[in-house]
Design a protein around this nucleic acid. Structure first.
Lengths: 138, 138
DNA sequence: AAATATTTGCAACTCTGTTGCAAAATACTG
DNA sequence: CAGTATTTTGCAACAGAGTTGCAAATATTT
């Protein structure tokens, strides 16, 4: 796992720092999306708020993680798939938010449905945000 | 139009106040979604920030407007369709955000596609968030 | 190992949204 | 339509999220 972390950071041309290693590790260990607050808690306030913000920003820019649109206006982040690269995200999978526990999952194997737009509109991206109860809470 | 505004407020059991009339009017006049900041600007800071927040909250509770999930973490509001009522929203249409001008539209006549969830997940709601260029900006 | 470049932590700030409370506006009652 | 009860507003103060500038610390390069 340690190798994986270092590899990912190097591949993106990022220098290896404690905070980047730790925060990336948290994403690799977690099977659902993380919000800024989760990361601060999980790293036991080991890093400054600002550092966490900047690290997340950097990861998004480099295509390591992506933000998940949400109905409750809380930004969550999740690991990108392999096809993502700096400045080029390809995360058109379905996101699922559990109403009970709040956990957010990327449903990789759920197809994004076709969307038909009115005349004159040009489609770039479709995000699907499903909510309900997850398999733990149902 | 004045009648319409009064009617909507009365139908929802709300008392008729200047701010509610004005803010509801802004929604009726606008053909796209409005964020809190838009409303403050459009009403030329006629009302206190707090009043705008509370009015929007009230409108959402009463089923007059609904919030639109967004990728950029800015809450936007739009008028609900007739089928909505207090505590019971039915706004499962496609929302479209223009990358250029930021305008957000409710695409009423675009069907919400089916989403297939993994075993054990229970679906309650599906939001579809499309982005690209609107007919003005394309 | 020294020099250079990058990243971190701190302080201070902005922006968004919330809460308690007194004053003002609205609705209700006779 | 005047008087009372209820609701809503505006203010002040606060809490939280996110950003920026800058000096100190850490990582990378040679």
């Amino acid at each position: 796992m340690k190798e994986g972390i270092t590899n990912i950071l190097k591949k993106s041309g990022l220098s290896l720092t404690d905070s980047r290693r730790r925060i990336l590790q948290l994403f690799l260990e977690s099977n659902n999306a993380l919000a800024h607050a989760d990361i601060e808690k999980l790293s036991s306030d080991q890093f400054d708020r600002v550092t966490v913000y900047r690290t997340l920003q950097t990861f998004v820019e480099k295509g390591i993680i992506h933000t998940i649109p949400s109905a409750d206006n809380a930004v969550r982040y999740a690991l990108c798939q392999d096809e993502c690269s700096a400045g080029h995200h390809h995360d058109e999978h379905v996101h699922f938010v559990c109403d009970v526990c709040g956990a957010t999952f990327c449903l990789q194997h759920t197809a994004i449905p076709q969307v038909q737009l009115p005349n004159g509109f040009k489609l770039r991206q479709v995000d699907v945000l499903a909510s309900g109860k997850c398999n733990q809470c149902a």
